[in-house]
Amino acid sequence: MATVRVTAKLGFLRPSCYPSLETGATNSITTMKGTFLLVLILEWIHQSNCCDFVDAALFCTTIPTEFPPGVSTLLISVSEAGEINSTVFHHDNLESVTSVIIRGAGITGIAEGALLSFLSLTSLALDQNELMDINHKWLGRPSILTELSMSQNNIRVLSGAMLREFTNLSKLTLSRNGINTIQTGTFTTLTALAHLDLSYNNLTQLTSEMFSPLHKVNMSLQGNPWVCSCDADFIKFIVDLKSRSLLHHAEDVTCASPPGLRGQPVWNITVCNAPTSPIYPFTEMETPRPSQSVTSKFFPLNSSAEMSLNIFAHCCGLEFLCSMEFLFRYSSDHLY
């Protein structure tokens, strides 16, 4: 197994990049075995400041100042890159590049126009960096980009301003960013979107309006702390995705709260578990309307019960009046 890995690595090395490797030494190295050789070559790659150009793909361990013509794929493996300014990738030979991959490079920011020279770029992967937003002004032609992958960055909020110019985007990967908010209208212009990965973020609920006018997007939503309350639209949205086979890893799209539903698939929730409280016609601080009796303030009554109560009150009133009249007459007769 060690020999196979070493041979694969040596296929990307050029003697001009590694002066310590003579032609004869290179041939003998391919026959050597053991962990020591593998570690040695990996260390050479790490310390090297050159690139290797293989089958239209340029592999670099640092950001070069010159680029050969005819490059279609650019893969850069660096660390602690910081902010990419507007001049680093300013080169005429980058016009042919269709795919750029810069993962785990410690990129904290990208200046507007920094990727302006990539006029044919259709795929951009910036995973495992420290970016906090997405900006179409990074690129010269954002409208031709079809794949954008920015998982494991520091994006918290998605808005329409971030994505509106990526009109031809078909695959968007934003997993493991800590996203907690998606503003309405974020995906309005992404009519070509077919795959959306929002897994392992901090989303709690979604609505169909967030994804208007998208209709046939395959979504990955697992690993979010979904709140399965009485929001019928949210549950309906997830159920609809599941019924149309558009929800990837559906079994892992589960409720985080309320506690009674924790671990249950969101698309399988049929009962509302939100606490309910009794509803009264008005509160104690309110004054009852003339059409209502004081008693109904505390004991909600139906129409029949209230009518009976009113009749009883009238009867009591008449009886009281009759009693008062009798007493008055009795008193008058005894006085005179």
Rank of each mutant, 00 (worst) to 15 (best):
A125C: 12
G109Y: 04
V78C: 03
E251D: 13
T173I: 14
R156G: 04
N273G: 10
D231M: 06
F320E: 08
T61E: 10
W138M: 04
N27Y: 14
L206F: 06
H248D: 12
I238M: 02
H314K: 08
T61S: 12
N27M: 14
T270G: 00
M162A: 10
L139D: 05
E165M: 08
E83L: 00
I279W: 07
S117N: 09
T189Y: 02
P69S: 15
F299C: 15
S220W: 13
N153C: 06
V100E: 01
S143V: 06
T3S: 14
V266W: 00
S175Q: 13
T87Q: 08
L174S: 12
I76F: 00
R14L: 09
Y18H: 09
H195G: 02
L148F: 13
Q222N: 13
I182V: 15
K137Q: 12
V4M: 13
G104Q: 02
S28P: 00
N27R: 14
R5I: 14
T191I: 03
F312D: 09
V266M: 03
I182L: 11
E147M: 11
A105G: 06
K242I: 00
E325R: 13
S99R: 09
G106Y: 01
D233V: 09
P275V: 03
P68Y: 10
I63R: 10
L74I: 05
S79F: 01
D333L: 14
L309D: 05
T122G: 10
G185L: 07
L309H: 06
I102V: 07
I144S: 05
L40V: 02
R141Y: 10
W226H: 04
P15D: 07
W267T: 00
D252K: 13
E80N: 08
V239C: 04
T204S: 10
W138S: 04
I238W: 02
L58D: 08
E95V: 08
L119A: 14
M132R: 07
K137G: 07
A114F: 09
S20R: 08
S220V: 03
D240L: 02
S332H: 15
T204F: 01
V100M: 08
V294T: 11
M210R: 02
N310I: 12
P281F: 10
T189R: 07
T295K: 14
I63G: 01
E284K: 11
Y330W: 15
Y200R: 15
C255T: 03
T204H: 04
L301P: 07
T287E: 09
A25P: 02
S170N: 13
S175M: 11
L121I: 12
G104K: 00
P281T: 09
D333F: 15
V71W: 06
R329L: 15
N202R: 14
S99V: 03
L119W: 06
C315E: 12
F299I: 15
G223F: 01
S220R: 09
C228H: 05
S220H: 09
S229Y: 04
